[in-house]
């Protein structure tokens, strides 16, 4: 059963089931890890800044790098007007990063391997873009879908493409993260499963298991990279999309 690569994504109630409006909102293992993410992120960042040293030590440097990475990203993409969105982008980045990194521990649950989590965050971001865009530019914000300087004959066609590309943003944003985390964890589990199955076959199997073992080690390294990269991509795409809400320079 434990060899089943899908088992790691299974959700079960820890507390509950509690029913609200006919929906079960019992506290599950996934929710427990969401709590861990909050605890770890806030706890770690507070721990790194306890000394408030003028010359940062190792821990404080990590906290400051974490901060500067997102701060520079928001500054570069959104400019000074984007400062209001910095806490949000930082929260999204930290949530995804810590979720992905926690998922790298064996027997831990990967919150971001569930499409409902990633899709909700992506829809929230794109919804925020629409709300902020209309609040800032009024209905003129919809000019985003009507690029200037395009001949009238092909304008409807271009607008259609613009609208489709805008609507596909939450899908690409949410599914990219979900797909990466899901596939990575399945592949890791499959290769690790090979090792266990082959070793059970005896001496020949032990020698043969070296290949999937090396593969699993290499994939683990790759998955750490992917875990960081996907968090980074999620954050920077959030910035790029929010940029459309702030500046309609199409």
């Amino acid at each position: 059963m434990v060899n089943d690569p899908i088992h790691q994504f299974r959700i079960h109630n820890i507390l509950g089931p509690w029913n609200i409006l006919g929906y079960d909102i019992g506290f599950t293992n996934s929710n427990l890890f969401m709590g861990f993410i909050v605890l770890l992120t806030v706890g770690f960042l507070l721990l790194t800044t306890t000394k408030r040293a003028l010359v940062p030590g190792r821990l404080q440097s990590v906290g400051e790098m974490w901060y500067s990475l997102v701060h520079n990203m928001v500054e570069n993409v959104l400019g000074h007007e984007g400062a209001a969105f910095f806490p949000l982008v930082f929260s999204l980045f930290s949530f995804v990063l810590v979720a992905n990194m926690l998922g790298m521990f064996p027997y831990f649950f990967t919150v971001t391997s569930h499409v409902i989590v990633t899709a909700s965050m992506a829809l929230f971001v794109v919804g925020l873009v629409v709300v902020v865009g209309i609040m800032k530019h009024g209905l003129g914000w919809f000019k985003l879908f009507v690029p200037s300087g395009v001949p009238l004959a092909i304008l409807p066609f271009i607008s259609l493409i613009e609208i489709i590309s805008f609507l596909s943003r939450p899908i690409s944003l949410g599914l990219r993260l979900f797909g990466n985390m899901l596939a990575g964890h399945i592949v890791l589990k499959v290769f690790a499963g090979f090792v266990v199955s082959l070793v059970a076959l005896g001496l020949g199997g032990i020698i043969g298991s070296l290949a999937p073992l090396l593969m699993a080690v290499a994939l683990t390294a790759l998955e750490f990279l992917v875990a960081f990269l996907q968090a980074f991509v999620f954050a920077i795409l959030t910035c790029v999309y929010l940029n459309d809400a702030l500046h309609t320079h199409h």
Binding site: I11, G16, Y23, G26, T28, S30, H114, I116
Partner: peptide
């Protein structure tokens, strides 16, 4: 599992 995940 969506309602509880979304809620939390």
């Amino acid at each position: 599992t969506f309602p509880s995940q979304l809620f939390w």
